[in-house]
Simulated assay, not measured.
Amino acid sequence: MSADAGDKEWAKRLRQMYLGGERLKPAQIAMASAALDEVWSGGRCAPRVSEEA
């Protein structure tokens, strides 16, 4: 997968669904949150914190 912004539109759509309260499969959450480098939990999304800091 390339780093073009359009390649992650699927993940952004899933984020909107997740934030809108739709129930997603755990695999959808895991793949989309990883693609956007975020953590999705409890109906919220936050940037993933690097352990290097």
Rank of each mutant, 00 (worst) to 15 (best):
M1E: 13
M1D: 14
M1Y: 05
S2C: 14
S2M: 14
A3W: 09
A3R: 09
D4A: 07
D4H: 15
D4W: 10
D4C: 14
A5L: 12
A5R: 12
A5W: 06
A5Q: 11
G6Y: 11
D7C: 07
D7G: 13
E9Y: 11
W10H: 03
W10C: 02
W10I: 03
W10T: 08
W10F: 04
A11Y: 00
A11G: 03
A11F: 03
K12W: 13
K12N: 04
K12M: 11
R13L: 06
R13K: 07
L14I: 09
L14V: 03
R15V: 00
Q16W: 13
Q16T: 08
M17F: 11
Y18G: 05
Y18V: 01
L19Y: 01
L19H: 08
G20D: 08
G20P: 10
G21W: 09
G21H: 08
E22M: 10
E22P: 02
E22I: 07
R23N: 15
L24D: 05
L24Y: 04
L24I: 05
K25F: 15
K25I: 04
P26E: 13
P26F: 02
P26A: 04
A27D: 13
A27Y: 11
A27L: 14
A27K: 10
Q28C: 09
Q28S: 05
Q28I: 12
Q28G: 06
I29D: 02
A30P: 11
A30M: 09
A30G: 14
M31C: 04
M31S: 10
A32T: 03
S33G: 01
S33A: 10
S33W: 00
S33K: 00
A35L: 01
A35S: 07
A35H: 01
L36T: 00
L36I: 06
L36Y: 00
L36P: 00
D37I: 14
D37M: 06
D37C: 14
D37S: 14
D37W: 10
D37H: 13
E38Q: 02
E38N: 01
V39T: 09
V39Y: 01
V39M: 02
W40L: 02
S41I: 05
G42L: 03
G43A: 06
G43Y: 04
R44W: 04
R44G: 03
R44T: 07
C45P: 02
C45V: 10
C45G: 07
C45F: 02
C45D: 10
C45L: 07
A46F: 07
A46S: 12
P47K: 14
P47I: 12
P47A: 14
V49R: 00
V49W: 06
V49E: 00
S50H: 07
S50I: 11
E51C: 10
E52K: 06
E52G: 07
E52S: 09
E52C: 06
E52P: 15
A53W: 12
